[in-house]
């Protein structure tokens, strides 16, 4: 760092009008300090993404090779049942998870915001699952939903013999089994964000609506929620990016089963890249994941940052 220091302190003395120091060396310490970050952003994030997209147009198998096959990998991808099922599963899980997380998160936050006692205790309880990993979450719920000893077994032993609730072994509802676990883990975070948003709303709004005699629920739906638009947008972006990443939970809770009925795109990518020695497929599938993120994020970014500039 000695060089950087001296360059920094000596620079002003030398900056006589005719002999300015090179622009590159101005503020040199800062530039050196930012090398790891710049390398990460440019080489790993940007370079890596471009690399993957480029190689998704090749027939790479065990090793990445640059022999072009055009859109072959994508055609194969969309012709694979497993991928189609993965997409359908993710769509189902995603829509349910998005709606339910928002609703539950907001309702819980609104209830905690009603100046109740033991608010801290309730918040601690609702948020603690978020500290746990998806692996732990998945394994616990796998056990609770166990058909013999779990919820189904308990209800049956109470006398309701025909009761069936066995989501982890029923291909039709297996995604809801995952959803229960996912909601348990993730709603606390959204509740916290919503609560922070609710606390940010001026008390005068509440007083005004009370003076006008507006019922509480109407105050929420007509005044508070529209005012919390930025908070909701943040929450949606957060939930959505979590949904696309969905992987650990599935691996732990169902391993994609029964059969392939709870496969998700991220798992498909991992399997073709590191399990099936089929890199090209993995690259194509991950490019599709990237595309879906772009489709979700670009409108949001335009709304958020485009609007700010105009305003």
């Amino acid at each position: 760092m000695a060089i950087a220091e001296s360059a920094d302190t000596v620079a002003p003395e030398r900056s006589a009008p005719q002999k300015r120091p090179l622009r590159l060396f101005r503020n040199l310490s800062s530039k050196i300090a930012l090398i790891p970050m710049i390398a990460t952003a440019v080489i790993v994030f940007m370079g890596g993404t471009i690399w993957t997209v480029v190689y998704s147009f090749t027939s790479s198998g065990l090793l990445p090779r640059l022999n072009w096959v055009g859109l072959d990998q994508y055609e194969r991808l969309w012709g694979t049942t497993k991928w189609i099922i993965s997409i359908q599963n993710l769509a189902l899980y995603g829509i349910c998870s998005l709606v339910l997380t928002l609703v539950i998160g907001f309702v819980l936050a609104a209830m905690l915001d009603r100046k109740i006692r033991f608010e801290d205790a309730f918040r601690t309880i609702f948020l603690y699952p978020f500290a746990l990993s998806f692996i732990v979450t998945g394994l616990v719920w796998q056990w609770i939903l166990n058909p013999d000893y779990g919820v189904q077994g308990v209800v049956r032993s109470l006398g309701w013999e025909s009761f069936t609730f066995n989501p982890l072994n029923n291909p039709d509802i297996v995604m809801f089994g995952l959803l229960i676990a996912g909601l348990w883990q993730g709603t606390g975070l959204i509740m916290c964000i919503m609560l922070a948003g609710l606390r940010g709303i001026d008390d005068d709004i509440w007083k005004a609506s009370r003076v006008d005699g507006i019922p509480v629920w109407k105050t929420y739906t007509r005044i508070i929620i529209p005012m919390m638009r930025p908070v909701f947008v943040t929450a949606i972006v957060l939930i959505a990016s979590g949904i696309i990443k969905l992987y650990d939970l599935v691996v732990a809770q169902t391993s994609g089963g029964p059969g392939i009925s709870s496969e998700v795109p991220a798992k498909y990518v991992m399997q073709s890249m590191f399990g099936g020695q089929n890199l090209g497929q993995g690259f194509a599938a991950s490019t599709m994941m990237l595309l879906s993120v772009v489709i979700i994020l670009v409108p949001w970014a335009l709304l958020e940052f485009g609007g700010r500039k105009r305003g």
Binding site: L34, P64, M270, L279, S286, T287, V293, L297
Partner: peptide, 24 residues
């Protein structure tokens, strides 16, 4: 600019960058 790039990178699914990182 680099900072914005870094933040944009936060939204890219990890699966996209897994293999390039292996190579790096």
């Amino acid at each position: 600019v680099f900072f914005t790039l870094l933040l944009v990178g936060a939204f890219i699914p990890y699966q996209v960058m897994l293999y390039p990182v292996v190579i790096i």
